[in-house]
């Protein structure tokens, strides 16, 4: 295969990785503070995308400017989910969290379908016609913006966690909830904040997804969410650098690996397309990683 083709596909993988990272970081944050895994995180991405769609359709302003609005809106929804659903079951066992998330998935997907139909929605980015060519590689301007946005989000997030009082309090809560509470940190407020931030990051992912020219529909969240889980499992629960590395790796691997497999079986005279194996490959990687290291590659011990 041509190197330029490979590089081009790396670009598509990089973009996919950005979405996974934003989702995974939010999940990780919630897990770190509350020790809760929200399986309905993909539905927050979906709601974020719809929020962006409606704000854009009703106001018509530059879609990149509405990301912040969508994030605030989802942050508020996140607080409600935390207070109404996850707070009451905290400490009643992990199975309950899984089942509760399942209920949330059914609720949000079908509520969206009921309110906004299952038809697909899209946003028209003002830059969708612009693309930068480097050699034979095409870089649509929207992709460059999305990658830059993701980096900015990550830097801002890191600064918030390390430099602000609130961020430090959240980190303290993640490390030791009881000790944090004894030190006067309002841990329940931290729970709410972590859910708000996690949901907002999911909304950012959803908005960027829509702006890049993909579509929104009520079921769009499930697959990216599954990938985000794979990312945090591979990268290790609670590890931000792990999530970044794993997110990029997964984004690239699922785009490039099918082609390698295809070329490989081609050597034996088998002509077969593996591009439909994207999800299957993600799970294979996940399972192999977990069999070798049940806590993930960068996983921290303990819960």
């Amino acid at each position: 295969m041509d190197l330029s083709v490979l590089l081009q596909i790396l670009v598509w993988g990089l973009y996919a990785g950005c979405i996974y990272i934003l989702l995974a970081i939010g999940l990780n944050l919630i897990f770190g503070v509350m020790k809760v895994v929200n399986f309905a995180h993909g539905e927050l991405l979906m709601l974020g995308a719809y929020a962006a769609f409606w704000i854009y359709t009703l106001s018509g302003i530059n879609p990149y400017l509405i990301i912040a609005l969508a994030m605030i809106l989802l942050g508020i929804i996140g607080v409600f989910i935390e207070r109404l659903c996850f707070r009451p079951i905290m400490g009643t066992g992990k199975l309950n969290e899984i089942f509760l998330s399942l209920g949330l998935i059914y609720l949000f997907q079908n509520l969206a379908a009921l309110l906004w139909t299952t038809g697909s929605r899209s946003i028209h980015s003002p830059y969708s016609d612009v693309s930068v060519s480097i050699g034979s590689i095409r870089l649509p301007l929207d992709y460059i913006i999305i990658i830059v946005f993701t980096i900015l989000f990550l830097i801002a997030f890191q600064l918030f966690m390390k430099r602000t009082t609130l961020g430090r309090a959240m980190r303290a809560t993640s490390q030791n909830r009881e000790a944090a509470a004894l030190m006067g940190i309002h841990v329940e407020r931290m729970d709410m904040l972590s859910f708000a931030l996690g949901s907002a990051l999911a909304a950012a992912a959803g908005s960027l997804w829509l702006i890049s020219g993909q579509i929104a529909n009520p079921y769009m969240g499930s697959i990216p969410a599954i990938k985000a889980f794979a990312v945090i499992i591979i990268g290790g629960l609670g590890s931000i650098p792990g999530a970044i590395v794993a997110g990029l790796t997964l984004g690239i691997a699922e785009n490039v690996l099918p082609l390698f497999i295809q070329s490989f079986v081609g050597l034996f005279g088998v002509s077969m397309s593996f591009t439909a194996w994207k999800d299957t490959i993600a799970f294979f990687i996940l399972i192999i990683v977990l069999v070798i290291r049940p806590t993930g590659i960068f996983g921290e011990k303990g819960e």
């Binding site: 895994v37 399986f39 992990k94 199975l95 969290e97 899984i98 599954i226 889980f229 794979a230 499992i233 439909a276 194996w277 999800d279 299957t280 993600a282 799970f283 294979f284 996940l286 399972i287 977990l290 069999v291 049940p294 819960e303």
Partner: peptide
């Protein structure tokens, strides 16, 4: 065998993945 050492969430994801793999 692949699941017994895993925590609940991991197990949930991995079993979910097995259904997809079986389908493929």
């Amino acid at each position: 065998f692949t699941c017994i050492r895993m925590r609940e969430w991991f197990l949930a994801m991995v079993t979910f993945g097995f259904a997809i793999i079986a389908h493929t």
